[in-house]
Nucleic acid binder design. Structure first.
Lengths: 348, 348
DNA sequence: ATTGCAATTTGGAACGATCCAAATTATTGC
DNA sequence: GCAATAATTTGGATCGTTCCAAATTGCAAT
């Protein structure tokens, strides 16, 4: 076998040209003669050449590394996994590769990960920030002219682009729908109150009950962990009230599933005895029993949009911060009691 | 602001030493004087220095890039997301970063992704291969002395390490348990027959029914897509038989959930009227209603083990192929009818 | 043939780090 | 105080690629 790795010089020797010509072929320059090009390509195949991007990046001061970094706060949550898949799609087809890391909501981990990505010379970053992230965390990136797109959670005070879903509009639509079904005591369940997302979704809820003429009653807001267990907990506390709610808008789908669990444990059937609406439209929402009425945000297309925006900024050279809020829509299924029985789930 | 990027030479100048000394500091060499070290570190902080790993890798023939590649066939599936998180944990704490890509079962995508990773100089690869992957796909990697660890799906004929769970042992235990509860017509539902995993799980099922003295009946094996929809489909076909099964071992948890859906659609309650056992123990298994009895494989610890094995091989310099099968265990919950009511799900 | 002009090709000189051997400085024993 | 030794520090040379200016080639027109 060959001792060291195969370099452009080996190829040049084998094809009887200079290393400069090989380099020209590598970058698909139109300057090189068709005959030479194929000779060089043949030699590359012959010797099993692998392009060394590290060396290339070293020389090209301006050009890019073809790496984009993706940082998410919880990959275990299928919402973020889908988001990453969406990003990967467009990033891959643009000839970039994805550096994906998970922070598990740890701000320290996030810092480490971003530092490491910088060392590797990422040409852009998409990040769903960990809970305690501050605007200052991205200062060095923007100073180095590395485009950053923040997704899912907005970060007040930053000069970077962001893509968030229309949280307020979503919960507003949910409340509106429940009110139209005749509910008058509608709860807002789950989520940690110290997050921007919580605030936005709660604001939509408040708007909703106000516009529907039900009035805002703080007692009906029950926060909890944004998880299935948290949802089960929240509905427990809600049902312990003297004047119980008959419907709930949940912080997200995980909470909504937990609420359903909790209702069943109390011999109440979600969708019949109590209306439940989630948020996110995770993949299980449509196959669960009862199928979950929820606000659909389509994380995958959100990921795609984030990647497109980032690539645009990378190509433009200059990162003009842009804020996008993606539309959401209410998907009516069974859990809200608006029995749409025609959405056939007879068999698969 | 500074024009170009900050290099070791800038640091050297600022700290009043030579670039060689700065380099020594960078690699934490014990040769350098404590006083100089802190002077250099101060200068680095001052100027906002970022280490250029690309340049470093160029020189160090032997040493590695601190990048490890991770390729999964379906990141949308939370099993693989958890696996990736497990890998990330140990990889990160070893000072490496993860290059994660998703192939969506596309062999072409997989090839592209691996080629791209090679160009970036990964020092190792962990891969859950796409369906049609051949042993030859990894030849160039092993020829280049890049350690490869195949996870989840074994790949016959490769000279690379692999970590798979004890599929056969898992389904065997599941059948044994169902037989001990008195079931005599036990079906095997879901999964694509052309995969190694399917074969192994089926083999465990066949062993199980044979050992239990029930005899193997091919009719009771119903394959389908390994998804929730597939499970719903499979149970539909199983219940259409003249002599219906009363219990099922499912290819995985997704199928098992689909089976539960299908049973409910036929007004049968899983766990009471029909026993269901899954495989994987995904996160939802314990909170679902009824809680799913399943074979636990703990993808996260599998990811951790894969990463540990890979790092071991990277550090050893030479990759001695190793095959590990990780133990699985039967987690008895409600869906098999062995009512363990004490596993309190009163509230959270 | 010789010139002019476009089409190709080509040797260095970078890029930012590491390595090596050799130089410098500090410390010790006598 | 001086040689011997240990502890630090330091200039190139180098990794594999791209860039640049300059050289070579081909070919039509003179």
């Amino acid at each position: 076998m060959t001792k060291g790795r195969v370099t452009v010089i080996d190829i040049a020797k084998a094809a009887g040209v200079s290393k400069s010509t090989v380099s020209l072929v590598l970058q698909g320059s139109p300057l090189v003669n068709e005959g030479t090009r194929s000779k060089v390509n043949a030699a590359m195949r012959e010797l099993g050449y692998v392009y060394n991007r590290g060396a290339a990046n070293l020389r090209q001061t301006s050009a890019k590394s073809k790496i984009i970094g993706v940082v998410v706060n919880d990959l275990t949550n299928s919402f973020f996994a889908e988001l990453a898949v969406g990003v990967d799609m467009v990033v891959q087809s643009a000839g970039f590769v994805q550096f994906l890391s998970n922070t598990s909501e740890s701000i320290d981990r996030q810092r480490e990960v971003i530092a490491s990505m910088r060392e590797h010379g990422i040409s852009g970053l998409i990040v769903s920030p960990a809970r305690a992230t501050e605007a200052a965390d991205f200062k060095p990136l923007v100073a180095a002219d590395i485009p950053v797109v923040v997704v899912v959670r907005s970060l007040p005070g930053t000069k970077v682009s962001s893509i968030v879903s229309d949280n307020q509009g979503g919960t507003f639509a949910a409340v509106e729908h429940l009110a139209s079904l005749g509910h008058t005591r509608i709860a807002f369940l789950g989520g940690f109150p110290d997050t921007a997302v919580f605030e936005e979704r709660l604001a939509g809820y408040v708007d909703g009950v106000t516009v529907a003429g039900l009035g805002f009653n703080e007692e009906l807001v029950v926060s909890s962990a944004p998880s299935r267990a948290g949802g089960s907990d929240a509905i427990g506390r809600a049902m312990a009230m003297s004047d119980r709610p008959t419907a709930a808008v949940c912080f997200n789908d995980a909470v909504a599933f937990g609420v359903c669990d909790g209702l069943r444990a109390r011999h109440l059937e979600p969708g019949r005895d109590f209306a439940v609406i989630g948020f996110d439209d995770v993949i299980e929402a449509q196959t669960a029993v009862p199928a979950l009425t929820t606000i659909s945000v389509d994380p995958q297309s959100m990921g795609r949009r984030a990647a497109q925006l980032l690539l645009k900024q990378i190509n433009a050279g200059k990162a003009e911060p842009e804020s996008v809020t993606t539309a959401v829509r209410l998907v009516v299924r069974e859990s809200c009691g608006a029995a749409q029985k025609k959405t056939g789930r007879k068999m698969a």
